[in-house]
Nucleic acid binder design. Sequence first.
DNA 1: ATTATTGTATTAAGCACTTGTTACAATAGC
DNA 2: GCTATTGTAACAAGTGCTTAATACAATAAT
Lengths: 122, 122
Amino acid sequence: MAWTLDSDRPIYLQLVEIIQMRIVSGIYKAGDRLPSVRELATEAGVNPNTMQKAFAELERSGLIFTQRTSGRTVTENTELIFSIRESLAREQLMQFFSKMKELGYEQTEITALINQAAEEGK
Amino acid sequence: MAWTLDSDRPIYLQLVEIIQMRIVSGIYKAGDRLPSVRELATEAGVNPNTMQKAFAELERSGLIFTQRTSGRTVTENTELIFSIRESLAREQLMQFFSKMKELGYEQTEITALINQAAEEGK
DNA sequence: ATTATTGTATTAAGCACTTGTTACAATAGC
DNA sequence: GCTATTGTAACAAGTGCTTAATACAATAAT
């Protein structure tokens, strides 16, 4: 899996999004132990402090938690995971519609584009 | 029109996006003279230097250009404006699909969600 | 001709982010 | 018990973004 980071936004926020995405999409499953801070930091090519900062953010949302010296695990709360997944999807949908309308596209044009893209994507 | 700025990304980049959006959506029309740096900076609540930096970015794309002391104008090149509009729309579409698939949604689910949202949005 | 407005440049300061480095405490694994 | 691994903390340094303040040159407006 790629740790694609750009320099236009704080790295730790991008890490949060990537890890969050891995959890809600099932790459890191409920109850799974996560790789250690140092391990993930090396893998992502960032400083351990930065990865630590990302984890701190993720704990606030309840998606992961720490057990002192035995590392971090994904929450067992599958409902929370699912609700965050839905929330992220809804957010994507809203943002997409909002931007397209700002660009001057009408509802019918948008759905047409979507259907067209869906056809091509098959 | 709102200058809604968040602190997660460089302000000057957000300004670039907002002004670009105003041009491709026709708020600032081809050939129009733009408000001065100082004026827009005040309106957006940012430092003139920051607005200046945003303008510098926009000139590189050819959307606007300066006439020494008579301010800045939007390009007359309506084709360029239209092609950028299309490019932005395509980008939105791609990003949306990409994120939704990353979240584990299938093509059919995505189109269903879009159609549902389109119905509600009417 | 004078004045005001334009874009532009410079400098200093403060801030958040990131890195590199080092260190500590707790505990799982042996 | 010893060792390695865990999360965590602290500090200095560098970088880019942003602001504030000031100034200058060109020219539109008067």
